[in-house]
Every structure is written in structure tokens, then in C-alpha cells.
């Protein structure tokens, strides 16, 4: 099959979504692991940040490019497929009762839009610091590294920032749950079973990621991270 035919087919697009989604999952797991270092104190986290931007800078950029391409493809495919699905049913039902679709499955679309908005905000907030609700732009810690820790603490003490993050992480958890198991299926790896293993793995991944990310703002609110 011609690569273009693959790209044009709905399954090809779904496979692209699945692969880019799995890249995203790998990334959020790494990201989450990094975040949890907040519990180890400011030095540890800020040093980690400095390491990424210092010696590992090239690697970081390679990963960033992969990630950016993945996100763009993921969003593009999602958009195209959503348009396709709308066109597939020009006249809707007067009455429709979904039978089994999970909340996670049904919120993929709008949850995805929320996540996209969140990612943009998040980059502007923590990466470029263009948005700076806590007034932490350019601050450094005692070792002269960028004060990531301080930004986290100061930001999550602002209620709406914390709420937005926590809400976005719920959306992320749901998105990951449906996304993780359905990508595996989309890629064709699924053993027949009413409660297949990959579905349980997806659940664990979703809960771990959601919890891992949510612990940090919760930690700040609870005063554990100060």
C-alpha cells in the first residue's frame, strides 16, 4: 500500500493517533517522575531542571521535537477523524441511549480539547514563563539555577491555577485510560478476553499518572511542599 493510502485511511489515521498517543504516554510518565522530585525539596528539583537544560539540552530538544510532531499529528488526526465522524451521520437521532461507552471514551474529544488548552497554558506558564501568575519570572535559587520549585509552590498557592491543573489532570487520566487501551487495540495487539490485560494496564497507567501529577498541587495546598 502506498504510504499516502495508509495516511488517508481511517485505520491509518487511527494508527497514527495510537502511536503518537503512546509517545505522549511515555512522555507524561517521565514528566511525572520528574515532578515527583518536588517532594525531595527545592535543590533536587531545580538541579534536575538545570541538568535537563544544561548537559542534556540536545537530547531534550530531540525529545521536544518528537513530542511536538506527535502532538501536532495527534491533534490533526483527531480533528480530521472527528469531522469524518460528523459527516458519517448527517441526520442524528431524536433519541439515543448510549449503552456501554465509558465516561473516558465519551470525553475523548472534549477532554482532548481541554488538554490541548492546558498544554499550551502549561508551556507558557512553566517553560517559557510568558504567563506568570505568581510573578516568578527570572527567579533563581541559591545555586543560581532557575527556581522551578519556587514557581511550583507560588503558582499552586493561587487557587485557580491549582484548580485548573487538578481538573486538567482528571481529563488527562480519563484520556489516558481510554487512549492507552484503545491504542493497543488499534495497533492490533489484543488477545480475545472479556477483561483483557491491556485494559487493566491502561487503568493502572491512568491512575498512576493522574495521581502522580495531582500529588504535587495537592502537596502544595496541604503545605507538604513549601
Amino acid at each position: 500500500m502506498h504510504p499516502l493510502a495508509f495516511y488517508r485511511s481511517t485505520i491509518g489515521k487511527k494508527i497514527i493517533m495510537g502511536v503518537t498517543g503512546l509517545i505522549g504516554i511515555a512522555f507524561v510518565i517521565l514528566h511525572m517522575a520528574g515532578n515527583l522530585q518536588a517532594f525531595a525539596g527545592p535543590r533536587k528539583l531545580n538541579a534536575y531542571g538545570a541538568m535537563l537544560h544544561g548537559p542534556l539540552n540536545e537530547l531534550l530538544w530531540v525529545l521536544r521535537i518528537i513530542l511536538i510532531v506527535a502532538v501536532i499529528l495527534h491533534v490533526l488526526m483527531a480533528y480530521q477523524l472527528t469531522m469524518r465522524s460528523r459527516a458519517a451521520r448527517p441526520i442524528g437521532y431524536e433519541h439515543r441511549e448510549p449503552q456501554v461507552s465509558t465516561l473516558a471514551a465519551r470525553t475523548m474529544k472534549w477532554g482532548g480539547v481541554l488538554l490541548l488548552a492546558f498544554i499550551i497554558f502549561h508551556i507558557l506558564h512553566f517553560t517559557t514563563q510568558t504567563v506568570d501568575p505568581a510573578g516568578m519570572r527570572g527567579m533563581t535559587d541559591v545555586a543560581g539555577d532557575r527556581d522551578v520549585y519556587g514557581n511550583i509552590v507560588a503558582s499552586f498557592q493561587i487557587w485557580w491555577v491549582a484548580v485548573f491543573y487538578i481538573a486538567a489532570m482528571i481529563a488527562l487520566g480519563l484520556h489516558l485510560y481510554h487512549g492507552a487501551w484503545s491504542s493497543i487495540r488499534t495497533l492490533g495487539y489484543a488477545k480475545a478476553s472479556p477483561n483483557p490485560l491491556h485494559r487493566r494496564i491502561a487503568l493502572v497507567v491512568a491512575i498512576v499518572v493522574w495521581l502522580g501529577f495531582t500529588l504535587v498541587p495537592l502537596g502544595v495546598i496541604a503545605g507538604i511542599i513549601r
Partner: peptide, 29 residues
Amino acid sequence: GHCTLYGECQEACPKQISIDTIARMNRDF
């Protein structure tokens, strides 16, 4: 349209055909 594995089809199917078949289709594809 495309498949997002909601599982509604398998629930509606009078012969209860499983969406496992869709994974097979994708693999063959």
C-alpha cells in the same frame, strides 16, 4: 466513520460479535 472503540457496536450486535475482531482487522491492515 472511524472506530474509537466505544464498544457500542458489540453491545448492539444481535450476534454479539466482539470488538476483538477490530484489533484483528487493524493488525492485518
